[in-house]
């Protein structure tokens, strides 16, 4: 079952404030180290890259290796200069791209 990513971004912030963002996406993160019942290796399939950008500017990125747990979780910070949109992207080994957006209002 493909679930939508879970993202936690404050709804509002003051200009220049450093906020905390949390993300969690449902994914097996098949490491490539496991074998199936017949002893054949299960091919690796992981999310290999995560990015967070604000209005087109990169805020945080992560290159993931198979040692990241299933359902990858990230907590990081972002400096918010003005109202705008955060864009989150997860890249899957199989070429799939999962995307999500969150708005923030600067008061």
């Amino acid at each position: 079952m493909a679930s939508k990513p879970r993202i936690k971004v404050p709804k509002t912030a003051s200009a220049g404030e450093v906020i905390t963002i949390k993300t969690l996406i449902s994914h097996e993160m098949e490491s490539g180290q496991r074998k199936d019942k017949d002893g054949n290796p299960i091919p690796r399939q992981i999310i290999n890259k995560f990015t967070c950008a604000f209005e087109g500017q990169t805020v945080f990125e992560c290159d993931l290796d198979p040692a990241i747990s299933a359902n990858p979780y990230f907590e990081f910070n972002a400096k918010v200069p003005a109202s705008g949109t955060f864009k989150f992207t997860w890249l899957d080994d199989d070429g799939s791209v999962y995307e999500a957006e969150e708005l923030i209002e600067v008061k």
């Binding site: 079952m1 879970r6 969690l24 359902n71 979780y73």
Partner: peptide, 12 residues
């Protein structure tokens, strides 16, 4: 509940 990985299946 955000950090709880069990909430993913609950949302499903």
């Amino acid at each position: 509940t955000f950090e709880n990985p069990g909430m993913v299946p609950v949302e499903d």
